[in-house]
Simulated scan of single mutants.
Amino acid sequence: MKQQILVKSVLALLVTGALSTGVMAANTPKGEDLEGRMYGGIHALYLDADNDRKATPDVNSTISDASGAGLEAGYRFSPKWEGRLAYTDLMSVDTKSSAFSADDGSMTSFDMLYFPSAQNFYGLGGFSLIDLENEELSLNLGGGYRHYFNDRFAMYLEGAGHYQFDANLKDLTAQLGVIYFFGGKSKSPAKAAAPVKETAAVTTAAAVAPKPAVKDTDKDGVVDTDDLCANTPMSDKVDSEGCTIFTEKTATLELVINFDNNKSVVKDEYYGELARAAKFMSTYPHVNLVIEGHTSSKGSAAYNKALSQKRADAVRKKLITNFSIDADRLTAIGYGEERLLDTSDTSAADTTNRRIHAVVETQVKEAVKR
C-alpha cells in the first residue's frame, strides 16, 4: 500500500510541477537548438502485464499490472533523433488473485526517439529488460508527446508496447515524465532597440573607384575577359573571340622518275625528288601514296607489265629503306604500256614513257598571318 501511495505521489508531483510553470507550447524550441545537448529526468510508469505472466508456477498467479518510478538520461543526436536510457523501479506488482503475491521488479530500457517535425510528437523503438519474476528482453515500439515550457524544461506522456520473443509476452506501458536539458542558453526577451539619434545630413562627393586595368595577355587585340583562345601566336590574325583565323589550301605532291631502257634501277639524280616526297608524307602523316609504273611501247605487253611493276617497286623500296616511310602507306602498281604519255614512235617518246608517276592531294588549314 505504501508503495502505491509513493507512485501516485510521484505522478502528482510531476503533473503539479509541470503545470506550475504556466508557460505554454509557444516556447517549444527548434530541433536544431537541442542538437548536441544532454538531459536528465524522472518519470512514473504503469505496466499492463500480459495475461500469461505468472508470479509463481501456479496457473492462477497471473500478474495483472505493475507501477513504479525511475530515472532517465538522454542525448539529442540531431534535430530529429534522440537516444534515451531509463531505469524504472517497479515497486508495486499486483496479481489477479489475492491468494498470490509478487516480488518487486524493475525495467531497464534503451530507446531511440524520432521527432518527425523536430518538435513535440515522436515515435520510439528500442529494447527493454523487464524483470518480473524472470528477466526478459523485449522489443519496444511506441509514441509520445513532449510539452516544452522553455528550452530546458519539458514534460512528456507516452505509451509503448513490449514484445518478449521467447515467451511470446506482450506488455503495455504508459509513462509520464519530466526532463531537464543541460547546456545551451535559456531564451530571454529581446532588448528594445536603442533610439536612433538624428544627425544632420552631410553631402559628400562619392569616391569614384578606379576602373580595373584591362588585360590582353597574349597581345592579340582581344581583352582576356572576351578571349576564348588564350596564348594565340602573336603572328596569327585572330577573330573577335581571340581565336586564330585559318584558311584552307590544297597541298599537292607529284613525283616523276624516269628510267633507262629496259632498266628498273632508280638513278642517284632522283634522290632529291625522293627526299621531297618523303618530306611531304612526313608533314601529312594521314596521306597514302600510290606509285604507278609505266614503260614505252617497245617489247611485248606482258614483259612491259612486269618491268613497270619492278620500277614501281624500286621507288617504293627506296622510300621505305632510305627515308623510313611506313610500308603500309605506299602502294606500287605496274601498268606497262597501257598509259603512254607520248604515242609517237620516236626515241624521245620512249624516254618520256619509261617512268613512274605518283600524285596525291590533301586539304590543310593554314593560319592567316597579321
Rank of each mutant, 00 (worst) to 15 (best):
F149R: 10
R152T: 10
H147A: 12
V178G: 03
D226I: 01
G126R: 04
F149D: 01
T204R: 04
A209C: 05
K187I: 11
G221K: 00
D166V: 10
L157V: 13
T217Y: 07
Y163M: 07
V196C: 06
V202P: 05
K170P: 00
T204A: 10
T199M: 02
L129G: 06
P210F: 07
E135Q: 14
S186W: 06
L141D: 06
D151I: 03
K197C: 02
E135S: 11
A194Q: 12
K219D: 03
N134G: 11
A160I: 02
K215F: 07
F182T: 08
L129S: 15
A200V: 09
P210C: 03
Y156G: 01
L157D: 08
L157F: 09
F127C: 04
A200P: 02
I130M: 10
L157K: 05
H147N: 12
D216I: 07
V202L: 08
I130S: 10
A205D: 14
F182P: 04
Y156V: 00
A160R: 12
T217A: 12
D151P: 07
E158D: 14
D220Y: 06
V223K: 08
G142K: 00
T217F: 08
Q119T: 14
K185F: 08
A194M: 10
F165N: 07
G159K: 07
V196M: 10
H147I: 14
L169A: 10
A201F: 09
N231T: 09
A174K: 01
L172W: 13
R146V: 01
T199W: 00
F149M: 13
A190Q: 07
C229A: 06
K197W: 02
K215G: 00
L169S: 05
A230R: 10
V196F: 03
G184F: 00
A154I: 06
A118W: 12
S128W: 04
R146C: 01
G184S: 03
L169W: 02
D227G: 08
D218A: 03
G161C: 06
G125D: 06
Y148A: 09
H147V: 11
T173M: 06
G183A: 02
A194V: 08
P189D: 13
L132W: 12
A192R: 15
N140C: 11
I179P: 01
H162D: 07
I179H: 07
K191P: 14
P195H: 05
F181R: 12
Y163K: 02
I179C: 08
T203Y: 14
A206I: 04
N120P: 04
N168Q: 14
G177R: 03
H162F: 05
G159Q: 06
N120W: 03
F149A: 10
K211M: 00
K191R: 15
K187Y: 11
G161M: 13
H162N: 13
I179V: 14
G144S: 04
N120F: 03
P189S: 03
D166I: 11
G143C: 03
A209D: 15
K191E: 12
F153Q: 10
K211S: 10
K197A: 14
T217C: 02
A193C: 05
D216M: 05
A118T: 12
V222E: 05
D226C: 00
E198I: 11
A194Y: 03
A118N: 14
N134E: 15
K185D: 15
Y156H: 09
A206Y: 08
V223N: 08
D226P: 01
L228Y: 06
A174C: 03
E158G: 04
